[in-house]
């Protein structure tokens, strides 16, 4: 029998370093976080789509999304890739599929949600701290909803001729948006954000990371492979912010056209189209920048 006892020492030549975990994530780990975030947010949104909506009076008392699902991922894993995967998952699983797809506005939705989640995820330093989790959950909803409220308002301006001269319209839209905002923070942010997240994040901490071949995050320590704090990243984040606001801004611009030259709106049709294309182009450039960024970081290793 060729049974041999295993020698105490390793016999082979050590390749690379004997280091433990790298500070940076490998390309496939990023892909894994992205795909996981996409899949889970997609499921969460499909479930919400199926839940019947309850309305009290004119206000929709429904859940916009399960904040705790993407929040858990940004809190425990790399916030950048988790934050990117969640809105993409929502668009792909629900919006495209359920016919909720609003075209260019989806880009704006992705940017808003990404920013909201990324900021919230970066806020969480200790995944076991209830206060940090609660703050982060509310932050997601506040950032996302504030941005989308602005866009919603401007859509009315662009969509309705001389919107501000229509009796009762601006007030009613403002009040509805205001109530909607408050209800969203309460239902989406607290009921389906803070409360489940306070339970789920600590419950999964230390359990989900090994399944992905990563080391659990140690409280206080910056997360493994966190977004590079370089000028490039700050630049991209800024560009995203501007692009998101640009969608609102460009629609406000149309109001000006509508007010001053209502008879010539068709003349400005081509110009307006150009604005739309410009917005898409900016969004596209941001997308390209993101991909470039990811390629750069993955080739760095």
């Amino acid at each position: 029998m060729s049974q041999t006892t295993v020698p105490e020492e390793r016999a082979g030549r050590l390749r690379g370093t004997a280091a433990g975990i790298r500070r940076d994530l490998s390309g496939s780990q990023k892909l894994m976080i992205f795909v996981l975030s996409m899949a889970l947010s997609g499921v969460a949104n499909t479930v919400i789509e199926v839940i019947p909506e309850v309305s009290i009076g004119p206000v929709d008392v429904s859940v916009s999304y399960f904040v705790f699902v993407p929040l858990t991922l940004v809190a425990l894993l790399n916030p950048f890739w988790a934050a990117l995967g969640a809105p993409v998952g929502e668009v792909i699983f629900v919006d495209l599929l359920m016919g909720d797809f609003s075209g260019l506005a989806e880009v704006e939705g992705i940017i808003q949600m990404f920013l909201a989640l990324f900021i919230a995820g970066s806020m969480i330093r200790n995944p076991r701290s209830k206060i940090q989790i609660a703050l982060a959950a509310v932050t997601v909803v506040v950032i996302d909803k504030a941005l989308s409220a602005i866009v919603d308002l401007s859509k009315v301006w662009i969509g309705v001729e001389d919107a501000e001269y229509v009796e009762g319209l601006p007030e009613s839209i403002l009040v509805l948006e205001g109530i909607g905002f408050a209800v969203d923070i309460l239902i989406t942010g607290v009921l389906f954000g803070v409360i489940p997240a306070i339970w789920l994040i600590p419950a999964l901490h230390g359990r989900i990371e090994p399944l992905l071949g990563m080391r659990p995050r140690v409280p206080g320590e910056p997360i493994q492979g966190s977004a590079p704090r370089t000028g490039l990243f700050v630049g991209v984040a800024l560009a995203l912010g501007i692009a998101s606001f640009f969608f609102a801004f460009l629609e406000a611009w149309d109001v000006a056209i509508g007010v001053f030259e209502p008879d010539f709106i068709d003349t400005y049709g081509s110009g307006f189209l150009w604005v739309g294309i410009g917005a898409a182009a900016i969004a596209f450039l941001v997308g390209v920048a993101l991909v470039k960024l990811s390629r750069n970081t993955s080739t760095e290793d």
């Binding site: 390793r10 082979g12 390749r15 690379g16 490998s26 496939s28």
Partner: peptide, 21 residues
């Protein structure tokens, strides 16, 4: 192993003459 699952890797693996490391 070791390109996807990283860790301490010692010794050699040759597949069709190619050193996998």
């Amino acid at each position: 192993v070791p390109h996807y699952w990283e860790g301490e890797f010692a010794g050699e693996v040759r597949v069709d003459g190619v050193d996998t490391y």
